[in-house]
């Protein structure tokens, strides 16, 4: 069964490297990317018609233009009942600020907080459901 990881981030280099890292795992993983929160909300809503295409895991950045990670979460909380599939959302930020980590805990929909860079080991753990807050 193929699985889908969704990367919501505005940093092209980060996305490129993460993609490469995931692809090297050879685990038949689909990768979905969005530039910012707004594009992600819109994209996910479109995919909603085919539940299979919705991601299993979302890696969400905090600092993004137009709609940042927190704003995405607020919108997602509002819309989540519409989604036909449960999705595990992880914050993936370079920020090690306590403020950000604490804030992520205020959302029950967020499964964990990952500090960039995201390494191979972390992805494997994610896929085995071993990562939690």
């Amino acid at each position: 069964m193929s699985r889908t990881i969704c990367i919501i981030d505005d940093d092209p280099l980060y996305k490129l490297l993460l993609k490469k890292t995931i692809e090297r795992l050879n685990m038949n993983i689909n990768i979905l990317t969005f530039e910012d929160g707004k594009q992600a909300i819109e994209g996910l809503s479109t995919l909603n018609t085919e539940a299979a295409k919705l991601p299993d895991i979302i890696l969400l950045d905090i600092n993004m233009p137009v709609m940042d990670g927190w704003e995405f979460m607020d919108q997602f909380v509002e819309d989540k009942s519409q989604f036909s599939k449960p999705m595990n959302i992880f914050i993936a930020s370079s920020s090690i600020a306590k403020h950000d980590i604490e804030k992520s805990k205020t959302y029950t929909e967020i499964s964990g907080y990952l500090v960039k860079p995201i390494v191979k080991k972390t992805i494997l753990e994610l896929l085995q459901d071993k990562v939690s807050l």
Partner: peptide, 25 residues
């Protein structure tokens, strides 16, 4: 300023880490 450092400087260093990790493999 600390927020800037935490987010913006860190994003570069995490990218550098990523690149080096990748170079390793």
């Amino acid at each position: 300023f600390s927020y800037i450092v935490s987010h913006n400087l860190r994003s570069h260093t995490s990218n550098i880490q990523s690149i080096i990790n990748y170079l390793d493999i």
